[in-house]
Amino acid sequence: MPAFSLNAYVALSAVLFALGGIGVLVRRSPLAMLMSIELMLNAANLLFVAFGRAHGGYEGQIMAFLVITVAAAEVAIGLALTVLLFRRRPEADVDQVNELRL
């Protein structure tokens, strides 16, 4: 039986998610943004696991497992795109990548 109430886990997950969001908003390098996205996914995972434990079922853990695997795939694709971006141009600030803008 976990010692703290479910509220503590939910609040911790919310704080982690919001801090990851600040990382995405504030940092301008694609690597830092990808890492912040990973941390946001982790915060959601913590919520899945906590609610799964609170209900006593396995669905939450299996969903978290799914999220971890999808995050691995996402990081592979995202880092490939980052490598391409760095290859194409000398600077890789995400503000400079605006060819697709209207």
Binding site: S5, L6, N7, V10, A11, V15, F51
Partner: peptide, 15 residues
């Protein structure tokens, strides 16, 4: 989010 997490109704669930 922290307010929702700390005082939200869903979090009242018992283990």
């Amino acid at each position: 989010l922290a307010i929702v997490g700390l005082f939200g109704h869903e979090g009242r669930l018992d283990w």
